[in-house]
Amino acid sequence: MEEQEVSREIESLRSLNADVGTNIRFINRSQQSANAWWLDYSGNPVSYGDIRPNHLLNMNTYLTHPWVFRASNGAKLLANQQDVYMPAAATEYEEDGNPKFLDVFITTPVYSLQDYCLMLIRDLVCEDDYGSLNIPESLKRDLRTPPDLLKELRSINSNRR
């Protein structure tokens, strides 16, 4: 799929402007590394790297800049219990007058049993061996279709309309 086409499909979930800044502290409370993704002005995800478990990432961002988080295996993570985190304005200030960093907690959602099992099988079984598993063909197809951030963003957008 061409990049322009992707941008049109997910354009409603994108950064709008850089008018009002805020300071965010993303704190990874999940048991896995969290990939931080900022959604740019076209709606394309831009990686800001990994946050190891029990570590944090201080970020200067803007109120209209959405963020999403994924585990290294592509599984969804939540930011303050949301699929997509929209930064809030800093309302407290340090003694020197600078805004305090707002804490945003990255956590693991409750996955469906099927999603959890697919993640586990992907971790334990080589992709070339999926065909030899004694499971239904529909599950083998699901195994061969790993999580896709762009597809999930399109789904989120369609649910917002």
Rank of each mutant, 00 (worst) to 15 (best):
A75V: 01
A75L: 01
K76E: 15
K76P: 02
L77N: 02
L77E: 05
L77W: 12
L77M: 08
L77I: 03
L78P: 06
L78Y: 07
L78M: 14
L78H: 06
A79M: 09
N80W: 02
Q81G: 05
D83F: 13
V84I: 15
V84S: 05
Y85V: 03
Y85A: 04
Y85P: 06
M86V: 13
M86I: 14
P87T: 09
P87W: 14
A88T: 11
A89P: 09
T91F: 13
E92D: 14
E92L: 07
Y93E: 12
E94R: 14
E94I: 00
D96W: 08
D96R: 12
D96F: 13
G97F: 05
G97E: 14
G97H: 06
N98H: 11
N98V: 04
P99S: 10
P99G: 08
P99D: 01
K100P: 08
F101Y: 15
F101G: 12
L102T: 14
D103F: 12
D103M: 08
D103L: 04
V104H: 06
F105A: 11
F105E: 10
F105H: 12
I106A: 09
I106M: 07
I106D: 10
I106Y: 14
T107S: 13
T107A: 06
T108P: 10
T108S: 15
T108W: 10
P109E: 09
V110I: 11
S112N: 03
S112C: 00
S112F: 00
L113M: 11
Q114E: 02
D115E: 12
Y116A: 08
C117S: 11
L118G: 04
M119L: 12
M119H: 05
L120H: 06
L120I: 04
I121D: 02
R122S: 00
R122Y: 07
D123T: 02
L124S: 07
L124C: 07
L124I: 03
C126D: 05
E127N: 03
E127T: 04
D128E: 12
D128R: 08
